[in-house]
Nucleic acid binder design. Sequence first.
DNA 1: GTGAAGTCTCTTGATGTCAAACATCTTGAC
DNA 2: GTCAAGATGTTTGACATCAAGAGACTTCAC
Lengths: 182, 182
Amino acid sequence: MFDIKRLHVDTTTTLIAMEDEVDRLVAAWRRERPDLDVEPLEVLSRVSRLARHLDRARRLAFTEHGLESWEFDVLTALRRAGTPYQLSPGQLLTQTLVTSGTMTNRIDRLTKKGLVERLPDPSDRRGVLVRLTDEGRDRADQALAGLLAQERAILGELTRAQRGELAGLLRQLTAPFDNVPG
Amino acid sequence: MFDIKRLHVDTTTTLIAMEDEVDRLVAAWRRERPDLDVEPLEVLSRVSRLARHLDRARRLAFTEHGLESWEFDVLTALRRAGTPYQLSPGQLLTQTLVTSGTMTNRIDRLTKKGLVERLPDPSDRRGVLVRLTDEGRDRADQALAGLLAQERAILGELTRAQRGELAGLLRQLTAPFDNVPG
DNA sequence: GTGAAGTCTCTTGATGTCAAACATCTTGAC
DNA sequence: GTCAAGATGTTTGACATCAAGAGACTTCAC
């Protein structure tokens, strides 16, 4: 088993490692269901919970720039595509992990706000291309700067080496999802 | 900068490290905005995306047990509390990271399904206690076993030591959120 | 005791998301 | 050519979530 929790049984110096909600969660399971091996929760429950915290923090950061989180997701996907800043709804799906109906709705709303526009795909008459307007591009750039500042603050807990290690381990978990069309 | 990506420029042996969507995302930003340091995304975008993938996988696993994800979250929080399997809505909030209105709604629906029941708090007349029914307890236990099996499969990518390391690094990021009431 | 401030849960209204069905177009085997 | 299978984007209806605020109760200083 892991000894990590041993590090902070001494409550006088919590500098070494703070307990988090998942520690309490896992301890509770070990008490209630000692027959079960709940070790997987140590990793994956933390991922889920951290993501929820990040969602909330991002929401706050974006409202300062007059954007919603979902708007940021779509606008930056287009921004990353480079000139002429256009992608198909299908390409946007794989980047944002939402369903196609949701994406249609998002494009509608962004079009109404003048941040993107819909064009027919010249090479496939079923298809559509979504293009960023100039204002959409500016808004995306501003919000990205804000987001990075916030994320840097959150990651201040870790050294550069730790961040690299964490990124590598997470990549091993995400790669199967991203590469097998699931 | 990180050298991690260097590991898999050789496309003949991808055993070492597979590229994921965030690698592509970061590469795109470095091309489009070379003036910006987007290193924080290497960690936090992976956390968010992995969480979305996990959400989907969990949803599938739970439907096999006739439960929704949100039902699982509430039922297991009560299950972990131990006999007599009851908590206040407020305690459930902090564990599930939803707003109070959402929790009210969840308790309503679980009550209708006969999985929990609402009792007046004997020590505080503003308060309520939510208690698991016998059926609720059984359903929670079954679904937990299913979830753990699935999570073990996902984590098969990593060695035990890597899982321990990952858990430790994630704890450092989640602890500030969990301990400073935010 | 009394009042102000805080806590706890529920209600309300707006909104975003999903799953599933659908219309349109493309592709490839024959 | 033609037709079935697949791909693409949209529509629909149900539903869960959130933010904000209201109502009921508790706590604590005085």
